[in-house]
Nucleic acid binder design. Structure first.
Lengths: 151, 151
DNA sequence: TATTGTTATACTCTATAACTATA
DNA sequence: TATAGTTATAGAGTATAACAATA
């Protein structure tokens, strides 16, 4: 029942349109990631972990980065371990286990990162200048929960 | 093993960064949508259908728009029907059923659209001018599969 | 007592296959 | 024969709760 001016209405409508566009674009980017990594025999959620594990990290930290339960990290680690892509190594605190990529894991991660970098939407559809314009806008849009992975 | 120039490397790295940013932002937008509609007692996937049903539409069309199987549309329609938000109405072709929002469904959809328009990221974090800059960039980024919904 | 990781279990979202009614 | 929707079932992804080991 809030009375808005016609001008306000138009701004809401435009913001809404942009919001939808943004999500559509991101959905395509995610689908693209899934398709790229499936070429390497990995489901997207495992590939995401691989990309995240630049350094060995406590399982607990992964759970925070992925905003999921610790028990799910156990499951992800099991799957990647079965594929020979990572190992659990004991931490200083003996309760803690670090997830560390094996040589094979590192090699696969590099291949995936490379493929994503070359084929991603931003690279394919924008000019250098457009990318320079887009960067700051996305930074303004991003809050804090910056989940840093390409998927 | 493809030899890239340092300049190419830098462009890939920047594109990759933008790609991650884009996905992170979209993830936040989606989380926001989920949180808004859960305030109205709806899970995000049902809200998405509600927003999509501006006009009564054959179930088949919904399946195309959501890029999912027809059987899943049956399940979504059942859930929304149980909540009194839509009804199935027979189409001209007697095999077809149209999904049409009830008055209650229309009212809820309007409330949700309004809340999303006012509270979405694009509205909150960008100036008018920034929005004008962002629009064309997103349009260039978008391919064809433009899934038109705010979630 | 609080925290890390594990196990067992269950739930949500979505797909596949077989089916019915209509075209 | 082909198409729209339904049913039954199954799978993937993820969470919750209770537990063991360590702090």
């Amino acid at each position: 029942m809030s009375s808005r001016s016609p001008n306000q209405e138009a701004r809401f409508a435009e913001a809404s349109r942009l919001s939808q566009l943004l999500v559509a674009v991101a959905e395509e980017a995610r689908a693209e990631f899934t398709s790229i990594v499936s070429g390497y025999g990995l489901p997207a959620h495992l590939a995401r972990v691989l990309v995240l594990l630049a350094e060995p990290a406590p399982m607990r930290d992964l759970a925070v980065q992925l905003a999921c339960d610790r028990s799910y990290i156990t499951s992800l680690a099991d799957q990647l371990e079965r594929r020979g892509l990572l190992t659990r190594v004991p931490g200083a605190d003996r309760r803690v286990k670090l997830l560390a990529l094996t040589d094979e894991g590192v090699a696969l991660r590099d291949k995936i990162s490379g493929a994503v970098a070359e084929r991603n939407l931003v690279m394919r559809r924008l000019t250098d200048e457009e990318r320079r314009t887009l960067g700051p806008l996305l930074e303004r849009l991003r809050g804090d929960g910056s989940a840093a992975c390409d998927c």
